[in-house]
Write a protein that binds this DNA or RNA. Structure first.
Lengths: 231, 231
DNA sequence: TCAAAAGTGTTGCATCTACACCCATGG
DNA sequence: CCATGGGTGTAGATGCAACACTTTTGA
């Protein structure tokens, strides 16, 4: 359980609620009565026996109980002063064995459906919750910057690699998929054209099933099959 | 000049010679008479006062004398056993203060024209040279893996971001640019179509100048202007 | 005058965009 | 029967792939 004192991982987990894109944040435990509790991305120091991907999964699980999520490394942040801001001192001295060490962090991001994952705070997290990207409070360390880069990465990967299914429930409607794209990319798509282009991707397989409990014409459900790769 | 014992940077510098894509390698200094000298990517531990980008530039300059090159971070490698292979022990114990530390490395890549940069060995490099990607010897540590990932990154960025001008001299012909694409992507392009698509990129500006000293019809020269961004 | 690479347009086909109405369901 | 979102086709414009011959230069 020995850690490397100057290498950490941080996870930017995006979730989609149906109307908003959320990010999973933790609230750091207060280090004293009058200390100001800060929000942060879930992350922690890397242990000596684990690789970086494992560290990211483990840290995320420890802090939020979320597991089984595919995390993708996207950038490493290593400014010498990224953990020296006074606002972060109290927390560092309270929880870290070597609070003055310079720390570089390897950042990961992931996409999930908020319905599928209910986070529970654990370890040094006081809370663990989905926060809309529109209402993200100032974050600890350089996590604002990390989050910003993650959003940029999300946008480019959404268009180039057509990820985005990940953000939806296993069974989804094409309108949900379209709304998701519109929210992330902040632009409108033509319904017919959008459906045409999605339908010709072999990975999106139509189910013999319809939406239930809606007060309008129920939509057909689709499923994403990652095994099918476009040729 | 204090270093962080478990964080390094490595640089994959691609060069284009006109017929081949090369990579810049160093040969590690022999640690004893009978030791086997190994090839490696230029890289070194990060110092406490520098950020990662600075560390990459500085390490590259120290080992090869190349400087003023734009290096782009592309991945961080951190397997626990990436520096524990017996083949690397002798060298580590000879040059590192803490040879048993686990080291993660932040990898960078870059593109230059081989004509513009003549490397000279320095520091712990015995040699520093351009090696064709076709003839890369086995490398130290996990540098084979790093190089392989860098090549993959180069291919995707070449098509998505139309980098590649970087590999050519400041003034280049369209045929040179085409040949470069063909070599990196290992496929042929139609001359007319290739020229059409390049010419409609505003960043490629035609010069009032022609090739000299060739024994055939001299080609028009072009230049890349990074300031012009496609709208 | 020959060799070697530079340079240049058009046509068919596939893909993308723009656009408007009827349908099924629950309340 | 009304409100709500689901679902569908076509025509015009644009972009991409295929294709062959003439030009300029140095040797």
């Amino acid at each position: 359980m020995k850690v490397i004192p100057n290498i950490s991982v941080d996870c930017v987990v995006f979730g989609y609620s149906g109307t908003d894109v959320d990010v999973l944040l933790i609230k750091q435990k207060k280090t004293s009565q009058d200390a100001e509790a800060q929000y942060a991305l879930p992350g922690n120091l890397v242990r000596t026996e684990e690789n970086l991907d494992q560290a990211a999964s483990r840290a995320l699980k420890d802090l939020t109980t979320l597991e089984g999520i595919y995390l993708k490394q996207f950038h490493t942040f290593g400014d010498p002063d990224r953990v020296t801001n006074p606002k972060d001192r109290a927390w560092l001295t309270a929880v870290r064995e070597f609070p003055d060490e310079r720390v570089i962090t390897v950042a990961y991001y992931s996409l999930v459906s908020v319905d599928d994952y209910v986070p529970h705070a654990a370890a040094f997290a006081e809370e663990s919750e989905w926060v809309s990207l529109k209402n993200v409070p100032p974050l600890a360390f350089d996590h604002d910057k990390i989050l910003h880069e993650a959003v940029e990465t999300l946008r480019t990967e959404l268009v180039t690699k057509n990820i985005g299914f990940e953000l939806l429930p296993k069974k989804f409607t094409l309108s949900q998929l379209q709304q998701l794209h519109e929210i992330i990319l902040a632009k409108k798509f033509d319904k017919r054209n959008f459906r045409k282009s999605m339908k010709k991707m072999s990975q999106i397989i139509p189910l013999d099933e319809k939406q239930q409990g809606v007060d309008h014409k129920p939509a057909q459900l689709f499923q994403f099959d990652p095994k099918k790769v476009d040729s």
